[in-house]
């Protein structure tokens, strides 16, 4: 998964490459400035700024760190420290859709492992991997607050619950 070859291959598949020099778009710059305005210190917009990059590019490429850190008035290494701490900031390319499967205690108790197995068999990947066609990445996620309707997962920003091995394939297949 993390070998340089697979990263490059993923980048080709998803059309996201870090080979070309990274340039912040005017929109990204504008949105980050807007975020910064909410706080007494620009650094507080770190997570927001990384999310702005990720919303447009799918992930946070290496080249983004330097120009974004500059806007925030911190070092690129400090921003990398923030980027790698938070689980919803992706420092490697991900698929077009990220399937986040809740593995916390309640979902675990009512069938998470069957859901995970079904997805693994259907997609041919496990947590932390991306399908060869660049369509899906699978990740575990902390309790997503749907415990009374578990097992639950999110595809991108959408919450799906009351999952069964029978309905989960249809749910993810709706994401092209």
């Amino acid at each position: 998964m993390s070998t340089p070859e697979t990263v490059v291959k993923l980048a080709e598949l998803t059309g996201k490459t870090q080979e070309a020099p990274f340039v912040l778009t005017d929109d990204e710059r504008h949105e980050i400035e807007h975020e910064i305005a909410h706080y007494p210190d620009a650094r507080a917009a770190s997570i927001g700024a990384l999310k702005i990059i990720q919303a447009r590019r799918g992930w946070v490429p290496d080249g983004a760190l330097e120009p974004v850190a500059k806007m925030l008035g911190i070092g690129a290494a400090e921003l990398e420290g923030v980027a790698t701490f938070y689980s919803l900031i992706y420092r490697k390319p991900v698929g077009r859709h990220v399937v986040k499967v809740c593995d916390s205690i309640t979902c675990f108790m009512v069938g998470y492992e069957d859901i995970k197995k079904t997805l693994e068999q259907h997609l041919g990947i496990t947590h932390g991997q991306t399908t060869a066609d660049g369509r899906f990445t699978m990740l575990p996620i902390c309790c997503i607050g749907a415990c009374d309707k578990g097992p639950a997962l999110m595809v991108d920003d959408d919450l799906h619950h009351d999952l069964t091995p029978d309905n989960v394939v249809g749910i993810v297949e709706a994401y092209k």
Partner: peptide
Amino acid sequence: LSVHTGAGRYICGEETALINSLEGRRA
């Protein structure tokens, strides 16, 4: 008053970790 959205990690719910995260630091 504004909404500040996080990016994962349970520890952000700890009061002082939350403040570090709000400031744009590791939680």
